[in-house]
């Protein structure tokens, strides 16, 4: 019985590409789910999808310069992502436009700019959407190293600036009266989310990145009363979904990304039905 279980668990691990995608999706699961708590709390669910498209001009320029190498493409999209994030930050600065409006404006403009750049090169034949919608089964060693580095940087920032980010997100006016550099931390949070989004969608693809960013954090939101526990639980959901999804995909021959996203969704539905907050809500 136990031998059989070990055989089932070890099955996919005989393939190096499965091991790499397992490690890749676990890392992406952790960083997306943790950063996703801020995305959910700030109501920026739209940001992930928008940024993944807004990086197109950066991706296009990087491709014409460096071809299909991972690093130039990463730097190209990161630059475009940071330009987008800065634009969103600047447009919302005066408080006249809401963040989702700003995201919509910049994302459409950047995406169009990308198309314009690509279409202006006459012998353009390669399909850049391949890079836009990475594949979880095509994770390379370099992808994993990159994700680990970015992940550690982001997690360290979240720990170091925990209380500043908390005040910035929960009560910006308090941050200002306490002389905490509000704009600085708002931009930093936006940059951090951008960093995670850019590195994640290139490794696992847009759909899986968006799901990892929003769904585990939303599930954790329904179950916890404090931000640190929300982050830990969210990361747990992300990891469990990655592992379960990949094993399902291996044994039942389902597309890997879809299997992981569906696991996230099933967890959310279960939490939504059984969450204690919901029960309180019904009682009222």
């Amino acid at each position: 019985m136990i031998n059989r279980l070990i055989a089932v668990l070890a099955g996919p691990l005989g393939y190096p590409f499965m091991v790499r995608s397992l490690i890749g999706s676990i890392i992406v699961g952790i960083i997306c789910s943790v950063v996703g708590t801020y995305v959910v709390l700030k109501g920026l669910a739209f940001l992930g999808d928008a940024l993944a498209h807004a990086v197109l001009p950066g991706l296009a320029i990087a491709y014409f310069i460096g071809g299909t190498a991972t690093l130039p493409l990463f730097w190209g999209s990161l630059t475009a992502g940071l330009v987008t994030a800065t634009g969103i930050g600047l447009i919302t600065k005066g408080g006249q436009l809401k963040e989702d409006t700003a995201i919509g404006i910049i994302f459409a403009g950047m995406f169009a700019l990308g198309i314009a750049i690509i279409s202006s090169v006459r012998n353009y034949s390669i399909d850049l959407t391949h890079f836009l919608f990475g594949d979880i089964l095509g994770v390379s060693r370099q992808d994993i190293v990159l994700a680990v580095i970015i992940g550690l940087v982001v997690l360290l920032m979240i720990i170091l600036f925990y209380k500043e980010f908390l005040v910035t997100v929960f009560d910006p006016v308090l941050a200002k009266t306490l002389r905490i550099p509000l704009r600085f931390f708002q931009f930093m949070l936006l940059f951090m989310i951008t960093l995670v989004i850019v590195v994640s969608f290139q490794i696992v693809g847009v759909a899986l990145m968006v799901a990892m960013l929003i769904t585990p954090a939303a599930s954790a939101y329904l179950l916890t009363n404090r931000l640190p526990s929300m982050m830990i639980l969210s990361a747990g959901f992300g990891v469990v979904s990655s592992i379960t999804g990949l094993y399902f995909s291996y044994y039942f021959n389902i597309a890997s990304g879809a299997a992981i996203v569906l696991t996230c969704t099933v967890i959310f539905i279960a939490v939504f039905i059984f969450s204690p907050r919901k029960r309180v809500f019904i009682k009222l």
């Binding site: 709390l41 500043e164 929960f170 009560d171 006016v173 308090l174 009266t177 306490l178 009363n225």
Partner: peptide, 27 residues
């Protein structure tokens, strides 16, 4: 100390009473 109107606060935010009061110490 500026205490905002109740309608300006996100009451569903995952923070406890202790967390909110501790925010006053942040600076």
């Amino acid at each position: 100390a500026y205490v905002p109107q109740s309608s300006m606060i996100d009451w569903d935010f995952p923070v406890t009473v202790y967390d909110v009061v501790m925010m006053g110490r942040t600076g």
